[in-house]
Design a protein around this nucleic acid. Structure first.
Lengths: 187, 187
DNA sequence: TAAATACGGTACCGATCAGTTCCATTTGCG
DNA sequence: CGCAAATGGAACTGATCGGTACCGTATTTA
């Protein structure tokens, strides 16, 4: 492939979708920025929706690779996910979680984009559970969803306050949960 | 005002915006559902953006009124906010927090809609802080943002999982935070 | 060199977008 | 009753939406 139009489309679309939202970015803008011809676009993707799905699937893989790498760099413990989040929040282009954003923007739960986004979250939960298991913690299956909920809360809060403080806060709360000896259920 | 067109517009727009997203709802649809003439719309609101702001400002007031009422019904303690959330999550039309959704959908932080949404969150935080103060808790100013972060995490999780479980989980975590005698900061 | 593939540019399609204008009707009030 | 304000309907604008068709060009491969 001479000029790798497909990859330029994915790169451009990922950046624009994340920065402005999926609906806010038209095919026209993607073509202009990526310098790909209109016909070439529809040779690679049957529709804008297909491009959205392809972007999300690629980002799911890349994001989880990035998370695993940063967690390892921060010691490999379950709490390291919040250190990784803090790094993410500090980036100038941070605009929340692309998958949360997609689920909110794409209201229909049956749409392909919505389901890719939901799948991402369950895969992240599985990864957090594996971190808890490796750390020898009791009840990883019960704790992982709670940590992911803290992660999501920290992400939304960071988006609103434009600071990394929520990652530190969430980490401190998570530390309390990990220290508690009895599994935490309803009170 | 004979047929109260303005109120019908606000009611219809609030429902449609929440269910489908702001961008996804055109003025055309609002006019059709509300049975308001196109001209009447622009007599009451200078633009669609002005309608969006009016809807959000009204919902801010109504939502916080509703929260205070449900918190009182659940004993008036700080943890009651999670009982109120659980009720919200159980509704068939639940689709997350309208203000979080607005901040995500309206990417530009300088837009009027975004700022109304941000203002709502700070007012809710102030309310939670007053609940902590009334309950005689130490360091309400430090704890309130943490509880709001838990609320946001529970909301996003409920939207993804379509269950009230996250409210119960968040309440249990919040209970641990309230019981801890020392203020929780970075570890 | 020649065929095949990928590509960029442009014109075009019908639909929808937000917003304006004009007109006939209906409503509440004096 | 009669007037004035509020209203609903429809026609229209220019811009943009996602998507299609065609054409000339550049690159790779046989």
């Amino acid at each position: 492939m001479p000029t790798r139009a497909r990859e330029r489309l994915l790169d451009t679309a990922e950046e624009l979708f994340y920065a402005q939202g999926i609906r806010a970015v038209g095919v026209e803008q993607i073509l202009t920025v990526s310098k790909v011809g209109r016909a070439s676009f529809y040779r690679h993707f049957s529709s804008k929706d297909a491009l959205v799905v392809a972007v999300l699937e690629r980002r799911d893989l890349q994001w989880r690779e990035w998370l695993a790498e940063r967690v390892a760099a921060h010691g490999g413990g379950p709490l390291a996910v919040f250190d990784a989040l803090a790094e993410r929040f500090a980036r100038a282009d941070f605009r929340g979680c692309a998958f949360i954003n997609t689920m909110i923007e794409t209201a229909d739960p049956g749409s392909a984009a919505h389901q890719v986004a939901a799948g991402h979250k369950s895969r992240v939960t599985g990864y957090v559970e594996s971190l808890l298991t490796t750390a020898g913690h009791h009840a990883p299956a019960a704790l992982a969803p709670q940590l992911v909920m803290l992660m999501d809360g920290a992400i939304v809060t960071a988006l609103r306050e434009r600071s990394t403080a929520s990652a530190t806060q969430a980490r401190a709360i998570a530390a309390v949960l990990l220290e508690s000896t009895e599994p935490l259920t309803a009170s």
